[in-house]
Amino acid sequence: MLNMAPWPWYITGPVIAAVMVALLLFGRRFGISSNLRTMCSIAGAGKLSEYFRFDWKAQSWNLVFVLGTGGGGAIARFLLLTPGPVKLNPDTVETLKSMNIEDAGSAFAPSVLFGPEAWSNPLALLVMLLGGLLVGFGARWANGCTSGHAISGLSSLQWPSLIAVVGFFIGGLTVSYFVLPILLPAL
């Protein structure tokens, strides 16, 4: 509606830092995936494991934060951001097209995985489901995700977070260079 251009990194990065700082000054802390534990506890997972027996009500503010994050995404998508493709490096576009991602450079996200046609593609559904499971497993195993470790943890100069972030990156590189070239053309 407002047709704003996408924000450059030097606006996006500082605003993310400001959100983290504001949460700390409000007596909270910035970390998204701890909500997974909270949601499992609410759903009654405390019956299965000690890990989920904790005072989740003290964490319910974080669910409000995530609710806002989803709402903010919708506001930006439908009211603020100019509808249009993510302008990618032409080399990246070529690489992705060679893996059958035809809408690289002309969409916001690849429709084969995120578009409505994914619902009728069993392999795409399986990949998304498996991806979600791995994200959830990894975030709890590492005791944090990109927001907790890369932003909160690195900002407070913590070694475990640096190691976790290096691990995230190695994982991403491995999938990008060795898994996706086989997986994406099969979708």
């Binding site: 995530v66 709402g71 903010g72 995404g73 930006a76």
Partner: peptide, 8 residues
Amino acid sequence: LGLLFGIT
């Protein structure tokens, strides 16, 4: 703050 984060 959540809204701002999602928008960002």
